[in-house]
Design a binder for these strands. Sequence first.
DNA 1: TGATATTTGTGCGTATGTATC
DNA 2: AGATACATACGCACAAATATC
Lengths: 239, 239
Amino acid sequence: MARSAIWKTIANSLTDDIGQGRYSTGAKLPAEAQLAARFGVNRHTVRRALAEMADQGLVHPRRGSGVFVAATPTDYPIGKRVRFHQNIAKGGQTPAKQILALETRGAGKSEAAALDLEPGAPVHVYDGLSLADEQPIALFQSVFPADPLPGLLAALEQTQSVTAALKICGIADYTRAETRITAKLANATQALHLRISEGAPILRTTGVNIDPKGRPVEFGRTWFAGDRVTLTLDSQVGH
Amino acid sequence: MARSAIWKTIANSLTDDIGQGRYSTGAKLPAEAQLAARFGVNRHTVRRALAEMADQGLVHPRRGSGVFVAATPTDYPIGKRVRFHQNIAKGGQTPAKQILALETRGAGKSEAAALDLEPGAPVHVYDGLSLADEQPIALFQSVFPADPLPGLLAALEQTQSVTAALKICGIADYTRAETRITAKLANATQALHLRISEGAPILRTTGVNIDPKGRPVEFGRTWFAGDRVTLTLDSQVGH
DNA sequence: TGATATTTGTGCGTATGTATC
DNA sequence: AGATACATACGCACAAATATC
């Protein structure tokens, strides 16, 4: 049996090192020259192994700086009930939210369509930033019909939580009716807030939440930092 | 009542033009200078309108070339049953698949874990390209346990369809057990196959399909061109 | 291949109306 | 009322990418 290529062995070894926690997330690997010396191979061979690992998203090189262990992305379940606080807490991380803007204005076309309103009807808009363990995870914009929810903005300002604020306004439960997902590149504003570089990959989801009677209560758009989040869908049922 | 900004009016007007089909997808809008003349405003004002539309993904500018109407992305439902042919055909487009590679080899670690096999156990691997209306939509790699499916590669070569090939091998139905989604940037190989530029956004999904008895039959990874696809999840049920 | 025109991207300066303190 | 900040709009010039001949 042919033994596998040296670079594969090295890649496996380093992958194992990372898996065993000998290099923690964000840590810098030894320089390529040092790794080459350790494994007794040419630097090119180490580079081939690192290239493979970078392609798999395990590490990311920074020219002139070093090769760093990539942060393992946070799992974010997209199911019938999407709850940021629960999702993050379940993964053992500490959730937090930061308010960027709270306002009431007229609904745009797509917002009106999603919420089943007339264009221009008053809506509450909540722009914010979601964090896990102090690290920005996602930018979001939630749009709510204003008429049935007069006290929502005040509740949001207090709690910062959509779930809690809706409960205060009399909506004890809501479920996800539809979700759409695309990939985008971060623009300057998103990059700034999410502390990623411009042009980094972004997962954009749009979703509509409905109350138990089927009335839309929230139209949400979320921009996840692609490097930090994996959306997971567990055994969902179609139509 | 304050009239709204000129640039907003222009953005609405152009958005309407696109919606009405006066500019079809892929078409080039008149040059900024011409639009400025048409609306009787400064070029900056037109640019502000176009910037808004670009931010919403309605158009995308190409320096030196023009501003083009963005293609409306193909909807791709991710539900309990994920079937490429049906998904595309339902959207009124013509599906096609192109085989890039068919082989049998030993399972890697992650593949073995997903398929509930020992690492190194034989697996069939199907690398391919999915197209809708002749346009590349996604790259995929499907991995199947080889032992229970001896004739699979031949069936795949004939039909190019996973569903059909599995049926030939005695698996009449299969459902999606788990799906994971992240955003990446296209590398050179992916860019080449998908005919997008390197660094363009990619939607990567990994999923496991199981037969009615709950045994994993396929471990699939798919790289969607982010600009051309929107994943949709309709009313799924969690855990 | 190379020169030229076209088109978008960027920067600066100026001016005006409208909120906000 | 005054000062300040901000959004909007116009004008000009040049850089950078692309298209064309």
